[in-house]
Amino acid sequence: MESTSIFFTSFKTTDLWFLAEAAYRTLLISGISISLGTALGLIFGWLLHEGRLISTFILSPFLDIFRSVPLIIQLVLAYNFAPIIGLNIDPFGSGAIVLTIYTTALVANVVRGGIDAVGIPMRRAARSLGMTYWQDMIYVVSPIGIRAVFPAWVGVALGVMKDSALVSVLGYVELLRASQILITRTQEPFLILALAGAFYFALSFPIARFSERLEKRWSQ
């Protein structure tokens, strides 16, 4: 009895701090990959829209790979490929890199859709008013395009936030991994999983609702 009591102790309030710290790590890795991935996705989405031969035959199939292979496999591959080429990356680094590329692939398609949503007559009108290509992009395409695909982008961002739970396979202690650790110690799976789930839900649900309302308001 003495020896087991060391391993199995009940849930304490200090464990809440442990969970909060892990939640912070979830936010950190998803925040970094969403912002970097969105920036890269804007560039690649623009390239996809411009539709030169390179983007249709190389870029588009390449980005498609990241949407057709499970994220968990991508993570394991990247984590085990880095040492092969002599890099030494910790779980956070490889997780962030893979999540960033994954976000880029998803956002690029959203951005392409946004630019495509602006009709060609509108763009011709802008150009015939004497706007340059980039003026047209900034003052005409971006306001209309963003309204068209902002909800889709929110969906992608929330999806990446939820998928960041998978980085736990590499050993990065984010929220879900932390809850696993606590479950092993306290043997109270329901309570701890409910806490972890409540955090994800509390983050994702209001944002999803907000974007839904925004979508409704914009479509009127």
Partner: peptide, 15 residues
């Protein structure tokens, strides 16, 4: 829709 799929699996597995 608002929790990770992995969380849902863990819930059915361990919860």
């Amino acid at each position: 829709r608002n929790t990770p799929a992995l969380f849902q699996l863990f819930f059915f597995g361990f919860g």
